[in-house]
């Protein structure tokens, strides 16, 4: 499957923290033919293995989970209340349609309700709606979702012009798609290092999956793939541009040599790249992977993305392709 098609497929599937099986299954089915071994671990992580000449162990990691919602209370036949799984900005919720995944396997519709402006008190207009006061209308379903059902915003990925894609969960299915494409490429070339691809669970809720899987894989070097904020008009935030190529993280949570090697690999192969300063923790799985056991050397490669954690996330397929070229070059160099 082509990179773009694969991304559309996995990003449109649902998989909030702890409930990633469907996405994991699709990746597993597709990556198997390019891997020597594929398995899931005790925590639900998917690990694909591609043998090299045993010269070192390289881990490519991307979290597979997305932010989501959970039905936290049944109010009555028509309404439920919700809680977030990961950092959802609830300002974007009113008026959204939800796909609710029942604990019995059925899929339901939900609409996040809001009082029409006509009926609002004038003093309430212009105020941010309190999350505690949000409700979801489930009246349209014949059967109703149960307490504890997970939900995601119904925003399948669509194309926006020639190169851009928009939708939910591009954070971090974009990186999953990049790793998938790297494995495809690896099936055609020789490489020395043993390559592990880790599609980890529960990142948005604390990086659990990456920590425990890295413990069992124990790689020499781990390259973490995630997304980063693009085109932010701030005064101190890093300047990362959509279509500027993958961003290479630099800072405490990244090993300096790994950073330099990645940068060199990009330069030698005319891969477009940008530098992302990380003055502290990176907010990615790199933070926890670096501290596993006696320490793991980490590199961080991020896909520029606009409007993170909304159903209107935007990435450029060109940035993904450059990231694939970068990682392939890095692996050959390894």
């Amino acid at each position: 499957m082509e990179l773009k098609e694969f991304l559309k497929l996995i990003a449109s599937e649902y998989g909030p923290g702890g409930y990633e099986e469907n996405v994991v299954k699709i990746i597993q089915e597709n990556i198997s033919k390019y891997s020597d071994e594929v398995k899931t671990d005790n925590s639900g992580n998917l690990i694909a293995f591609k043998k090299g000449n045993g010269k070192g162990k390289l881990l490519l990691e991307a979290h597979v989970d997305e932010i989501g919602l959970v039905v936290s209370k049944i109010v009555n036949e028509d309404y439920v209340r919700i809680h977030m799984v990961g950092g959802v900005d609830y300002k974007i919720l009113p008026g959204q349609r939800l796909k609710i995944f029942g604990r019995n396997g059925k899929v339901y519709r939900g609409v996040v309700g809001m009082l029409a402006p006509h009926l609002q008190k004038s003093s309430d207009r212009g105020k941010v709606i309190d999350f505690d006061e949000l409700f979801v209308d489930v009246s349209m379903n014949d059967e109703k979702p149960e307490l504890g059902s997970m939900a995601v915003l119904d925003a399948p990925v669509v194309e926006l012009g020639e190169t851009l894609l928009t939708g939910k969960a591009l954070d971090n299915r974009s990186s999953c798609a990049v790793i998938f494409e790297v494995f495809k490429t690896l099936s055609k070339i020789k490489h020395d290092a043993d390559i592990y691809a880790l599609f980890s669970v529960k990142e948005e809720t604390g990086g659990v999956g990456a920590t425990v899987a890295s413990f069992s894989i124990e790689p020499d070097i781990a390259i973490i793939l995630d997304v980063t904020h693009a085109d932010v008009n701030g005064s101190m935030e890093p300047e990362i541009k959509l279509d500027g190529g993958p961003a290479l993280g630099i800072g405490p949570t990244v090993n300096r040599e790994v950073f330099e090697t990645l940068k060199k690999a990009a330069e030698e192969n005319n891969v477009k790249y940008q530098i992302e300063p990380l003055p502290g923790r990176s907010g990615t799985d790199a933070d926890s992977i670096q501290l596993v056991k006696k320490g793991i050397k980490t590199g961080l490669v991020s896909i520029p993305l606009r409007y993170m954690h909304t159903p209107a996330e935007i990435v450029s397929i060109e940035d993904l392709k450059e990231a694939v070229r970068l990682l392939t070059a890095y692996i050959i160099k390894f």
Partner: peptide, 21 residues
């Protein structure tokens, strides 16, 4: 069935133990 919007329990620590429990 419980969904708690805050707080945490020792389960969070055991999930992170070694290769994960």
């Amino acid at each position: 069935i419980e969904i708690l919007p805050f707080g945490g329990t020792d389960a969070a620590a055991y999930q992170r133990l070694k290769a994960g429990v």
